Computed example of a mutant assay.
Amino acid sequence: MKIDPREIAALASAQPAAPRMDMYAGIHKALRAYMADTLLGLGRMDVDDDLEFAHTCDRVMQMLDFCRSHLRHENQFVHAAMEAREPGACADVEAEHAEHEEAISALAEGVSHLLACARAARPATAQALYRQLALFIAHNFEHMHEEETAHNRVLWAHYSDEELVRIHDALVASIPPDEMMATARWLVPFMSPAERTVMLSDMQQHAPAPVLAAVLAHVQPHLTQVEWAKLMRSLGLPPLPGLVH
């Protein structure tokens, strides 16, 4: 894929004049961050340090589980909504989702093979897994771009923002608490300050106070001091004691 300034300008101008509800924006930032961090961790892994080796392999498996869950959420909620009002709109991307499921399973097998291989074979096996994971991530980045452009055009053409919010809220409500905390870990730190405020202000208004406190405590170590201070001010909260780093 070749990107030039004209293409970037065309993408920017294709955005709706008034901001629309974008179900992909936040979670795709989280996915890009999680994938990139996992790939970097695998690339720098010390295969001779058994604890680091096991921990890094587990990180890859957790990321693959996260991707698998994300596919299910999109299929169940977003694709179903698109197909309900424009049948066939998801055909190409659903085929890619099936390919991603197969790739996730193959990568998981690759991690298991790496964990079980002889110590002398670890460097070459880890490098092979690293390259395969890089290709998987590259394909996912292009795939997410297609969803953010082509899929949003379908959603915006057939649904009001109020309807999209209801679909999004139903999707979020279906996510178990432990998965939601894992999502927050990669979602909140890699949003813009304005996006963080919108998301957490909504939680502040609608979720029990202990839930908000747990999420804030979970994500705070992954924010800079400046980012944390901006967030606390935007929520009208004092810095949480003992959490400044």
Rank of each mutant, 00 (worst) to 15 (best):
K2H: 15
I3C: 01
E7R: 14
A10L: 15
L11V: 12
A14S: 13
Q15G: 14
A18H: 15
M21G: 11
M23Y: 05
Y24C: 09
Y24H: 15
A25E: 06
I27L: 07
H28R: 11
L31M: 07
R32C: 01
A33L: 04
M35Y: 06
L39I: 02
G41E: 00
V47G: 04
V47M: 04
D48N: 02
L51C: 13
A54S: 01
H55K: 15
H55P: 10
R59G: 06
R59Y: 10
M63K: 08
F66A: 14
R68S: 06
S69L: 04
H70Y: 03
R72G: 08
E74H: 01
E74F: 00
N75T: 06
Q76A: 11
F77I: 01
F77S: 03
H79A: 02
A80V: 00
M82C: 03
A84W: 02
A84F: 01
R85G: 06
G88S: 11
A91P: 03
V93C: 07
H100M: 14
G110I: 12
V111S: 03
H113W: 14
H113P: 10
L114R: 10
L115Y: 14
A116W: 07
A116L: 15
A120L: 09
A120M: 10
A124M: 15
A128I: 04
Y130C: 09
R131Q: 13
I137Y: 03
F141Q: 06
E142K: 13
H143V: 00
M144T: 00
H145Q: 06
E147T: 09
T149Y: 13
N152M: 14
L155F: 03
W156C: 11
W156Y: 06
S160W: 13
I167S: 12
I167W: 09
D169H: 09
A170W: 04
L171T: 10
V172W: 07
S174K: 05
S174W: 11
P176I: 02
A184Y: 08
R185D: 01
R185C: 00
W186N: 07
P189E: 05
S192I: 09
T197Y: 12
V198H: 12
L200K: 10
L200H: 11
L200S: 09
S201W: 06
D202M: 14
M203I: 09
Q205C: 13
Q205D: 14
P210M: 00
A214N: 03
A217C: 08
H218N: 08
H222I: 13
T224Y: 01
T224C: 03
V226Q: 13
A229K: 03
K230H: 11
M232H: 07
R233W: 09
S234C: 10
G236A: 10
G236Y: 11
L237P: 05
L237W: 06
P239L: 09
P239V: 04
L240F: 12
G242I: 01
G242C: 01
V244H: 02
H245I: 05
